[in-house]
Computed example of a mutant assay.
Amino acid sequence: MANKFAIVTGASTGIGFELASIAAENGYDLLVVADEPLIDAAAADFRSHGVEVTSIEADLATLEGVDRLLAAGGGRQVDLLCANAGRGLGHGFLEQDVADWRRVIDTNVTGTIYLLQKVLKDMVARDGGKVLITGSIAGFIPGSFQAVYNGTKAFIDSFADAIRNEIKEAKGVTVTTLMPGPVETEFFDRADMLDTNVGASDSKSDPADVARDGWEALMKGEAHIVSGWKNKVQATLAHVTPASVLAEQHRHMAEPGSAKK
């Protein structure tokens, strides 16, 4: 058993898979979770690095799912948490089913901050631990045809800044926000956005590069990292561009059928 223990959520694919791989390479025993059976196959990959890996399939949109995840840790001290699980949703808000947009909010917001509260309490009590939260530059942009998702990321980006300040006296605890742009993962397929300009684009970031950026910032204890120079430029411009202009720009990216226009 390694001395270090990490929890990585949303670890079956994409950024979460890459973060868990890096943690395993760095000698962390792992507790990994996703809402699909593929998490067990991912765990087998992580074990190739010679660390102990526990995998669990759980729905982190529910408090019960988060509790199941934490129980699977067996009371072990969490040295590192990568709160990466997230869910997207495309199309116009008025067309979306209530159950679908609620699931996005419950996964990206409710489940995430419940997990953070549980883990951070112990970290602050002992004055030690690292947290990486996957936010997004989408949180800076009014997300036409992706309104609920962008809204949840705006919440997460803001929430992380607030919590970082609240616990600043715990010098041994760091909270880092990873803010990528569009990433080449299953996200756009699952969000039914493959017919959009952003979903069909071949210029999306590599999840391995995003994870490495996040990991490096996490190890340095940095507050934020926007992954990719193009995304850094977009994030900077978002702070000085009128919301109406940003919303129209996002419409061209995310409107259903825009990839065919």
Rank of each mutant, 00 (worst) to 15 (best):
K171A: 12
R87A: 13
F46D: 01
E36R: 15
V119S: 02
T152D: 05
V175F: 10
T174I: 05
S55F: 02
I56C: 06
E184G: 05
V131K: 00
A83R: 08
I167W: 06
V78M: 04
S48D: 11
S244C: 01
N3P: 04
K153N: 02
R212I: 09
S158Y: 12
T62N: 11
E57I: 11
T9R: 08
F93E: 05
T174V: 10
P242T: 06
T196A: 11
G129N: 03
H224A: 10
I163Q: 13
G16C: 13
A11R: 00
L89F: 06
K230F: 09
L132G: 03
G88N: 05
G172C: 06
I163H: 01
L30N: 10
G221S: 02
K260A: 11
Y114E: 09
I105W: 02
V148A: 05
T236D: 05
C82H: 10
P180M: 10
A42M: 08
A138F: 10
E57C: 09
D122G: 09
T107W: 03
V8G: 05
S48A: 15
E36S: 15
K232R: 15
K130V: 00
T54D: 03
I56F: 06
N197P: 00
Y149P: 06
T236I: 09
D202H: 12
D59T: 13
L194G: 03
A61H: 04
A243K: 12
I7A: 06
S12M: 12
S55C: 02
F93Y: 14
S258L: 01
L120F: 00
G228V: 11
D209K: 15
T9I: 08
C82A: 15
G135K: 07
V210S: 13
T196I: 08
L80P: 02
T152N: 04
T241M: 03
A208H: 08
E25Q: 15
S48P: 02
I156S: 03
M1I: 11
R87H: 13
D189E: 15
S244R: 12
G181Q: 12
G92K: 13
L38T: 12
T177F: 00
A44M: 13
G50K: 09
V240L: 07
D127I: 01
D29H: 08
A24N: 12
K153Y: 05
Y28T: 11
K168P: 01
K220V: 03
N165R: 14
D100P: 05
V32K: 02
D195G: 09
P180E: 08
L60P: 03
W215E: 05
A99G: 01
A42D: 08
L31V: 03
A243M: 02
I133S: 06
G151E: 07
I15Y: 11
S144I: 01
G129W: 01
I163N: 03
G73K: 07
M179W: 02
P256R: 01
A24Q: 11
K220Q: 14
L218K: 08
C82Q: 08
Q146C: 09
L60W: 00
H239P: 00
H224L: 11
G65A: 12
R47Q: 13
A254G: 01
G221C: 07
L63P: 00
I133D: 00
Q117R: 15
G16H: 12
E166P: 06
Q96F: 01
G92I: 05
T241N: 05
R251K: 11
